[in-house]
Design a protein around this nucleic acid. Structure first.
Lengths: 161, 161
DNA sequence: ATAGTTGCAAACAATTTGCTATAAG
DNA sequence: CTTATAGCAAATTGTTTGCAACTAT
C-alpha cells in the first residue's frame, strides 16, 4: 500500500503525516487520469470539499516525488505534472495528441537495457528516463482530415504545441 | 541553408523576413550550446548590441518551430527550449545532469522504426518523439560521492528536480 | 512542549496579449 | 500604400517563499 510507504518514509525523515498529504496522495490513487498538475490536484481536493491550499499542494507533490511515490513528467506545454511511480514497475511512456491534448500510455521494456548501455559508454549515472511521442490521435485525424495553412495554436491547453 | 528555407516558408505564408527573425535564427546557428530558451536567445541578441524585445523572441521561436526549423524541447524544469531541427536528420536525444544541469546529446536511430511500429499498432499519427535520460554526469559524481539526506533542490536552475 | 506543516498573500518566473508605431513587400 | 511585425507594458499562468498560526508526535 502506497499509504504505508509514505508513512514509513516520513518517519525516517522525521516528517509528519497530515490530512493534506493524505488528500494529495489520494487524488492520484483515485484519479481516472494519471498525469496531474498541481493545479489539477488542487481542484480535485477542493471539489471533494476538503480544505487545502495551493502552496501545500505544490510542496506535497514535490515531497511525494522526492520520496519516490510520484514521478515528475513534463510535456511540451512546460507544465509540471506528476504520475504515480508504482514501485519499480516497468516504465511506461506517453503519446500526446497535439490536437486534443489526450495522453495515451504504453509500456516498453526496451529502454531499461539501454540505460545500462549508456551508463557504461558515457559514465553518466542514470536515474530515470522519459520517452514521449507527439502526434495526432485517431479521433483527431478523423476530425481534421485536411490541415489548415494558418498557424493556429493548439486548443488543448495554454501554451504548448 | 536554413536562411533560405525560412525566406521561402515566409513567402508561402505571406509573412515577412525581418531583422529580428534573422537575429533569432542566427542565435541558434552560432550558439555553442544548443537548447536555448527564449530568455537565452534574448540575452544573446542583446549582448551583440542588437535591438529586440522579449515578446518578439517568444513569437519568433514559436514561428521557427512551426516552420520546422526549430524543435521544441522541455526538460523537467518546465522551461521551454528550442534546438535546431537540422533537416530530417536522425534524432538525437538528451541526457540531463540533475546536479549541474549540463545537457549531453547522443544519437540513436532505434526509435525511428519504433514510430512506424507504434503508428500501426495504435492508429496514432506520430510527428515527433523525445527521449530523455536524467542522471548525474561523471564530474558531479566525483564532486558528490555521498548524497546528503536533506531534500535539497537542484542548484542548476530555478524549479526543476 | 516542540518542531514540522499549513495557509495566505506577496514575490517570482515564464509566457502571452493588446495596442500603436514602424517597416517590409 | 497596405498589412504584417516590433516593441512596450500590462496581464496571465505556473510556481515559490516568508511568516504567523496551527497540529502531529
Amino acid at each position: 500500500m502506497t499509504h504505508d510507504l509514505l508513512r514509513t518514509e516520513l518517519r525516517r525523515r522525521k516528517q509528519r503525516m497530515t490530512a493534506q498529504r493524505e488528500l494529495v496522495l489520494r487524488s492520484f490513487l483515485e484519479a481516472d487520469s494519471d498525469h496531474l498538475s498541481a493545479e489539477e490536484v488542487y481542484r480535485k481536493v477542493v471539489e471533494k470539499r476538503q480544505r487545502i491550499s495551493k502552496a501545500t499542494v505544490y510542496r506535497t507533490v514535490d515531497l511525494l516525488a522526492e520520496v519516490g511515490i510520484l514521478r515528475k513528467i513534463v510535456f511540451k506545454d512546460g507544465v509540471i505534472r506528476y504520475e504515480i511511480a508504482e514501485g519499480g514497475k516497468h516504465h511506461h511512456h506517453h503519446m500526446i495528441c497535439s490536437e486534443c491534448g489526450k495522453v495515451t500510455e504504453f509500456s516498453m521494456d526496451l529502454l531499461e537495457n539501454l540505460e545500462d548501455l549508456i551508463e557504461k559508454n558515457t559514465g553518466f549515472k542514470i536515474n530515470d528516463h522519459q520517452l514521449k511521442f507527439y502526434g495526432v490521435c485517431p479521433l483527431c485525424q478523423k476530425r481534421k482530415p485536411a490541415r489548415s495553412r494558418q498557424g493556429r495554436k493548439s486548443t488543448a491547453r495554454p501554451k504548448s504545441g
